[in-house]
Computed example of a mutant assay.
Amino acid sequence: MVYVDKDIESNLKYAPRSRNVFSTVKSTLVKYRKVVILLISLIFLSLFTDVPFVPHLKLSQPNVVIILAANEGGGVLKWKGAQEWSIERSSIANKKDYAKRHGYDLTIKDLTVKKRYSHEWRESWEKVDILKQAMRQYPKAEWFWWLDLHTYIMEPQLSLEEQIFSKLDNLTYRQLTDFNPLQLKTDIPYVDYSQPIDLLITQDCGGFNLGSFIVRRSQWTEALLDIWWDPVFYEQMHMTWEHKEQDALETLYNAQAWIRERVGFLPLRSINAFPPGACSEQSNDPRYFYSDKERDFVVNMAGCDWGRDCWNEMEHYKALSKKLQRPWYKFW
């Protein structure tokens, strides 16, 4: 007589059934392998890339998305050196920390891959196209904050809700009667300034500053981005306009009442404070330049690669921000 352990006997009893189930699953996967591959690919793209047509797989999407313009694969015209890599790492880490702290999302856009038009290269114009992509990528987000690489959030403990959105009416101005560096028109008729603000920008000595600006999702914003990105502007004016997409927006604002009525201007130092050396012709005007005593929110090292030292400026403001965040008793 042969004795068989009951556990072994039980396993042997159900072994054929297990093999049948495995075979069924295997045959199903083989049958629908294209669908399975597609699903796995979509999940991978959603989790690990910034593909604009694939919404990120999250239980809830953020209300604010920060868009950081970077050149992670190298410079547009040349490969980056050690200091340029350092600037990029510092800027990205700064935005990642800020977004994580306040429950925002950060999407990093590599501008080197935007050279995708066979007949043109809209350098600096691509931010309009990227904004359109980000809005498709984050269909539930309301606000989108564009930041150039040479920016640094100095007061990361302050949310945009606290710093900007909760006091829009008191913080913004709608007409250019008091501050108008470009001498744009101030008497366009039929402008309804009671409309909500959908575009938040600042002005500096050169006009509209697009190194740091904020847009709200709306039908107005979609229409603005469409006309701003229209190739007619580029084809006819790209050799004339020195500041490219900035000049295009200024022209639209100067001519179109429907655009003007939803633009709100923030003080420059609210999201774009300059370091010494920028806007040098206005060096004595405190409206332009970062103040550590008044704890300005963001510093924008605009134009640092034209006769200034971008790396030294980034390191200076990174160290200063860290120092300002220390508890008061650690200064002694």
Rank of each mutant, 00 (worst) to 15 (best):
K96M: 10
L324F: 07
V30Q: 12
V25K: 13
T112H: 10
Q61P: 00
I201Y: 00
D292M: 01
T151W: 01
Y253V: 08
S118F: 13
L168N: 05
L57A: 13
W229I: 00
Y290S: 03
I164V: 13
S18L: 14
V2C: 11
W125T: 08
K322L: 14
A255F: 08
R174G: 09
L147R: 03
H238V: 02
L182S: 12
D204W: 00
T251S: 13
I227G: 00
E315G: 02
L249D: 03
L268I: 07
F53I: 11
V191L: 04
E261A: 08
K13A: 13
W328L: 10
L320R: 10
V263S: 09
S218D: 12
G75E: 10
E261V: 04
N71T: 15
L249T: 05
G206I: 01
Q256S: 06
T151H: 03
M1D: 12
K318G: 00
L59H: 02
V299R: 00
F165S: 06
G303R: 03
E120P: 00
D309S: 12
G307S: 04
L249H: 05
D285Q: 11
V30G: 07
K114T: 11
S159C: 14
P55A: 14
D97N: 09
Q246A: 04
V232Q: 15
D305M: 00
I164S: 02
T186R: 13
S321D: 02
I43E: 12
A278V: 04
L176Q: 08
Q203E: 12
F233A: 04
D230A: 14
D148L: 08
S270G: 00
N180H: 06
L158V: 01
F265Q: 06
I130R: 01
A141R: 05
P62F: 08
D309H: 12
Y3T: 13
E72F: 02
V215E: 06
Q246P: 00
K109G: 09
V35C: 09
N20R: 15
F331K: 09
W311Y: 15
Y152H: 13
T240H: 15
V299W: 00
E142I: 05
Y117S: 12
G303F: 00
K322W: 07
V191F: 02
N94G: 08
S212A: 15
L225K: 06
S159Y: 08
H316R: 07
V64R: 08
E250F: 03
T24F: 15
D50Q: 12
K140Q: 09
L45H: 01
L320N: 01
S90Y: 07
T240W: 10
Y152T: 01
L199S: 01
S321Y: 05
Q325R: 13
D105P: 02
H150M: 11
S212P: 02
E84G: 06
E120V: 07
Y104N: 12
T202S: 14
K323D: 09
S10R: 14
D169V: 13
L176A: 10
K115D: 15
E120L: 12
Y98G: 06
K322S: 14
A257L: 05
L68V: 02
C279N: 08
P156M: 05
Y32S: 13
Y193L: 02
V64L: 11
